[in-house]
């Protein structure tokens, strides 16, 4: 027993000493692999785009990027993990609007916007409101407003989960249009698409990339774009009104950012910022985004602008949750 313990101890010591010597050489950041904390499980759209971005980022930081999936508690666990890591710039944090949403509910121990600084807004997306082909009640946004005003609550609209981004967006839009519809929560985008194609519901909002094939085939008809400007570059969306045509503004758009802890040293932050913006402008990464239509709404390119987007969304969510009774 003693002998084995001795061997064990020796092995441990050896393992500890070797890398210490390795560390001794002073080098510029980064000297080892970076971790990218993804607050979602493996396999979702947000996970895939973070991994994709990480792949291109490796080229510019010259170190491997290791994705770390922390999908617990709807982004809170990932945030807490990233927060607990030292502020040395080796831990990057991917976030989407869900993190801001959780902050408005004070779900985590600290506030995200007070502890993290944005590096880059990797990609943005926008959603469109569609109805199925052959809907006799309404085919355009104007017809929808007239119909819904005559029959309050009769129009069923689908979204992903209750009290999340879709729900918040839709309640804002409905208020802006002065109508009332009934929100039906589903759990995934595919369920929603099956529901609208099966005519269980009349309206659906979805990201453009995921719904485009159905628009191209004519099975779904776009009626309203959830963004501040019209999108004429996609043929199917030509001439479709956007929400600012109806005087609505300030709905959360869909985006994915990379952030780093606020108290990271400035030199490190600058290196990271440069690497991230280089990746953002990388032609291959751009090509990837174009395929998915993730570049059309790119608005916030500086950290200040990103912070502004976060603050605005925080305000919108806080108001929404107060109205629905989730927070007091």
């Amino acid at each position: 027993m003693k002998k084995t313990l001795r061997i064990l101890a020796l092995m441990l010591i050896c393992m500890m000493i070797v890398p210490v010597f390795g560390c001794a050489k002073k080098q510029e950041f980064p000297t080892r692999a970076l971790e990218m904390v993804i607050p979602f499980g493996v396999g979702g759209a947000s996970d895939i785009s973070a991994r994709e971005f990480g792949k291109y980022l490796e080229k510019y930081v010259k170190q491997p990027i290791k994705p770390v999936n922390k999908g617990g508690s709807g982004t809170v666990e990932g945030f807490e993990y990233a927060l607990a890591q030292p502020a040395d710039g080796y831990t990057l944090f991917e976030l989407t609007t869900s993190v801001i949403m959780k902050e408005s509910q004070s779900a985590a121990s600290k506030k995200f916007t007070e502890t993290f600084d944005p590096l880059v807004m990797m990609m943005t997306d926008f959603q469109i409101l569609c109805t199925y082909k052959g809907n006799e009640k309404f085919k355009t946004a104007d017809e929808l407003v007239t119909y819904a005003k005559a029959n309050p609550g009769a129009v069923k609209i689908a979204g992903i989960s209750a009290g999340a981004a879709d729900d918040c967006t839709q309640s804002t839009v409905a208020k802006g249009l002065g109508i009332k519809w009934t929100y039906v929560p589903y759990t995934s985008g595919s369920e929603i698409k099956a529901a609208i194609l099966g005519k269980e519901i009349a309206l659906v909002q979805d990201k453009v990339a995921s719904i485009l094939p159905l628009l191209q085939s004519g099975d779904l008809i776009p009626i309203l774009i959830f963004a501040d400007n019209r999108v004429d570059i996609i043929p199917q969306l030509k001439g479709i009104p956007c929400i600012s045509d109806y005087g609505i503004s300030g709905i959360p758009i869909s985006w994915r950012c990379i952030a780093v802890r606020k108290d990271t040293p400035k030199e490190v932050k600058d290196i990271l910022f440069k690497a991230c913006s280089d990746t953002f402008n990388d032609p291959d990464f751009k090509a990837y985004k174009e395929k998915e239509f993730l570049n059309i709404m790119d608005v916030a390119k500086t950290p200040e602008a990103i912070s502004k987007v976060w603050q605005a969304e925080l305000k919108a969510y806080t108001q929404f949750y107060k109205e629905t009774g989730v927070i007091k």
Binding site: G163, D167, T182, Y183, V184, E323, T324, G325, V326
Partner: peptide, 8 residues
């Protein structure tokens, strides 16, 4: 459980 008015 809390009561919310999120959905009908």
């Amino acid at each position: 459980f809390l009561d919310t008015t999120i959905t009908t």
